[in-house]
Computed example of a mutant assay.
Amino acid sequence: MGLELSQLHNLLLTPLAAISIGHLPPAVSAYLKCPLGIAYLSSFSLTHILRKHPDVSMMDMLCLPAMIKSGLWVADKRGCACVFYVHPETAKQYKSAIKAAGGGYETYISTFHRCNDRQRQSIVSRGGILV
């Protein structure tokens, strides 16, 4: 499943909308107790990410499907997991969090930002690696 820049632009223009980003790995889906295992990005979350993290562009966010598929997943608070990803072309490291919603049937990306090795190690040491 791919993600296009036009999808992100349309999401910004459409309040109360969401787009599917990809399928969660089975271990993450089980941890979040979300049998459907589909990760969504809402217009609210996209707006939040772009406002709170000005160093992240929508171009950076195009790596979200690859991040969901092959990132390092770490258990976080109940109903929440973190994923870390190093972009293969730019070597930039990103962190995202995903939360279960809708009675456990939907999962939404709640944040996406740059991170460093120290931040990743801190979170990995607190939670268990899922995938």
Rank of each mutant, 00 (worst) to 15 (best):
2 G>F: 07
3 L>K: 00
3 L>Q: 01
7 Q>T: 01
8 L>V: 00
12 L>E: 02
13 L>I: 03
19 I>Y: 00
19 I>A: 01
21 I>R: 06
22 G>Y: 00
25 P>E: 05
27 A>C: 03
28 V>S: 09
29 S>K: 04
29 S>Q: 12
29 S>F: 02
31 Y>H: 08
32 L>K: 10
33 K>E: 13
35 P>E: 04
36 L>K: 07
37 G>L: 02
38 I>Y: 11
40 Y>L: 09
41 L>N: 09
43 S>I: 04
47 T>M: 08
48 H>F: 12
51 R>Q: 12
51 R>K: 15
52 K>R: 15
55 D>A: 06
56 V>I: 08
58 M>A: 01
59 M>S: 13
62 L>P: 04
62 L>F: 03
63 C>T: 09
63 C>N: 05
64 L>T: 03
67 M>Y: 05
68 I>A: 02
69 K>M: 03
74 V>M: 12
75 A>P: 09
76 D>H: 15
77 K>D: 15
78 R>M: 07
83 V>H: 02
87 H>D: 14
88 P>N: 04
89 E>G: 06
91 A>G: 09
95 K>R: 10
97 A>P: 07
100 A>N: 01
101 A>Q: 06
102 G>R: 07
102 G>I: 06
107 T>G: 00
109 I>W: 01
110 S>V: 05
111 T>F: 01
111 T>C: 02
112 F>Q: 04
113 H>K: 06
114 R>E: 12
115 C>Q: 13
115 C>G: 10
118 R>P: 07
119 Q>H: 09
120 R>I: 14
123 I>H: 15
123 I>V: 15
123 I>E: 15
124 V>R: 12
124 V>L: 14
126 R>E: 14
129 I>N: 11
130 L>N: 03
131 V>Y: 12
